[in-house]
């Protein structure tokens, strides 16, 4: 008798990949433009858009917290999954070590984000 099939954990990683891919496809370009180009270069938006009081208030708000957490965590899980599955294409054997490194860094980033959001308070 064969042992019953073990349930795969792949759907979890795939779902995170899909959610992160969708979120980054929908708002990624504008987010990069706002935080990385418009505000540092003083284009378009008010100069104090990301000032400390405003960002603190945003990060203390429940919706703001959820948004920040979703963006950082899902972007990380999306990228980790995609990079992990591309390793084979560039001639690197994607074994357990590579898996731990890819998903491990996404998990670490997620935990740091959660810690920082809790430290910022409500």
């Amino acid at each position: 008798m064969k042992a019953p099939l073990k349930r795969s954990n792949a759907p979890i990683f795939w779902a995170l990949f899909g959610a992160g891919g969708m979120l980054s496809a929908l708002i990624g370009p504008m987010l990069v433009f706002i935080t990385g180009l418009a505000l540092p270069l003083g284009l378009l938006l008010p100069a104090d858009t990301m000032s400390y009081p405003k960002m603190l208030a945003f990060a203390q708000n429940f919706i703001g917290k959820g948004f920040i957490f979703a963006v950082i965590a899902l972007f990380l899980w999306h990228a980790a999954h995609r990079i992990f599955h591309s390793l084979h294409d560039i001639g690197i054997h994607a074994g357990t070590g590579a898996k731990l490194l890819c998903y491990g860094s996404a998990l670490l980033g997620t935990l740091i984000a959660a810690y920082a959001l809790l430290a910022i308070g409500f």
């Binding site: 992160g20 980054s24 990624g28 987010l31 990069v32 935080t35 990385g36 920040i68 963006v71 950082i72 972007f75 990380l76 999306h78 990228a79 980790a80 995609r82 990079i83 591309s86 980033g109 740091i112 984000a113 920082a116």
Partner: peptide, 12 residues
């Protein structure tokens, strides 16, 4: 994905 990861790192 490399840029998505790096940008998430900047935000983090």
């Amino acid at each position: 994905a490399l840029f998505v990861a790096a940008y998430a790192g900047v935000l983090l």
